[in-house]
Simulated scan of single mutants.
Amino acid sequence: MTGIDQSQLITSEAELRSLIGYPSELVEHKVISVIDSNCRNYISKSPFLVVSTADSHGNCDVSPRGDAPGFVQVMDDKHLIIPERPGNKRIDTLRNILSNPHVGLQFFIPGLGETLRINGRAYITKEENLLKPLAVKDRAPQIGIVVEAEECYMHCAKAFLRSQLWKPETWLDKERLPSPAKIISEHANLDGSTPEVIAARLEDGYKNRLY
């Protein structure tokens, strides 16, 4: 690795613990194994989560999911279901689940720094009785991700406080934001895929193919 002093790399948990220390008793005991009423309430108010998966070789992926608050449905005290809305058809998350069912979820509520984390095992279902209640504009998802919870716990707000993520006054002006269309155009490097063409394609997808 260029520019990295390999003698300074940390290679054991013991060395990590000597620097970081150990979690408090509260942190050790805040993890539960069921989706209790507190978790249900949080999920019912959450419009956004990220799903972390890895394939059988350990190659990782993190993918966002979002919709109206409560779009993720809690089925019972061990299971929830996430509707799979139309996307770019890469299906990275879904392919990973087929080869390695272990997933990590992190739920967000805008304006709240603390997030809800749920780790467990995932399954892909096409059962109509489960998917019909998840319909939007009379369009039920073709498939859903069912997660069996193994760990549920609250994650502290320090990252949000440091980043000031929920403070609009810290946000960049629109003119200073990176251009997604330009980035995609240059990364894809395909004839005819100019930033203008990509921008129009993105806008059409956002307007006409959310569901």
Results as ranks from 00 to 15, higher is better:
4 I>A: 08
146 V>R: 08
123 Y>G: 10
16 L>N: 03
183 I>W: 05
32 I>E: 03
40 R>V: 03
107 F>W: 03
80 L>G: 00
170 T>A: 04
143 I>N: 11
177 L>M: 11
101 P>G: 09
65 R>I: 04
135 A>H: 01
9 L>D: 02
68 A>H: 13
134 L>E: 06
85 R>G: 14
7 S>G: 12
134 L>M: 13
167 K>T: 11
148 E>T: 15
101 P>Y: 05
53 T>A: 12
21 G>Q: 06
55 D>L: 02
187 H>G: 00
147 V>Y: 06
22 Y>N: 09
142 Q>L: 15
129 N>V: 10
137 K>L: 13
114 E>N: 14
161 L>C: 08
70 G>Q: 00
173 D>C: 10
198 I>N: 00
80 L>P: 02
88 N>V: 06
71 F>V: 09
127 E>D: 15
119 N>K: 07
143 I>H: 08
2 T>F: 11
175 E>Q: 14
124 I>P: 01
33 S>G: 04
204 D>M: 04
105 L>N: 06
181 A>Q: 01
198 I>A: 02
149 A>G: 05
81 I>L: 06
56 S>G: 07
171 W>Q: 12
151 E>G: 02
196 E>A: 11
113 G>F: 06
191 D>F: 07
184 I>V: 15
7 S>I: 00
113 G>A: 12
136 V>W: 02
206 Y>E: 13
93 T>R: 02
153 Y>G: 14
139 R>C: 13
101 P>D: 13
13 E>W: 07
46 S>L: 09
173 D>P: 09
81 I>G: 05
147 V>Q: 09
2 T>N: 14
62 V>D: 00
84 E>Q: 11
119 N>A: 05
145 I>Q: 03
198 I>W: 00
156 C>W: 05
154 M>P: 10
164 Q>G: 13
156 C>D: 09
145 I>M: 07
1 M>T: 09
211 Y>W: 15
79 H>Y: 06
38 N>L: 05
66 G>R: 02
110 P>W: 00
155 H>G: 07
143 I>A: 14
139 R>Q: 14
209 R>N: 14
16 L>E: 02
161 L>N: 11
181 A>I: 03
178 P>Y: 01
22 Y>K: 07
33 S>I: 00
184 I>P: 08
20 I>Q: 08
76 D>V: 10
138 D>M: 09
2 T>L: 13
54 A>Q: 02
30 K>S: 11
37 S>I: 01
67 D>H: 12
186 E>L: 12
179 S>E: 04
134 L>Q: 06
137 K>S: 12
76 D>W: 05
134 L>C: 11
181 A>E: 04
82 I>C: 11
1 M>P: 13
13 E>A: 12
48 F>Q: 10
143 I>P: 01
35 I>D: 07
206 Y>C: 01
38 N>Y: 00
208 N>Q: 08
122 A>E: 04
131 L>Y: 04
147 V>H: 07
60 C>T: 15
39 C>Y: 01
99 S>W: 12
114 E>S: 15
108 F>Y: 15
159 A>D: 01
95 R>I: 03
34 V>H: 11
83 P>N: 00
66 G>N: 04
182 K>D: 13
139 R>A: 13
140 A>N: 03
33 S>C: 02
189 N>G: 10
192 G>I: 00
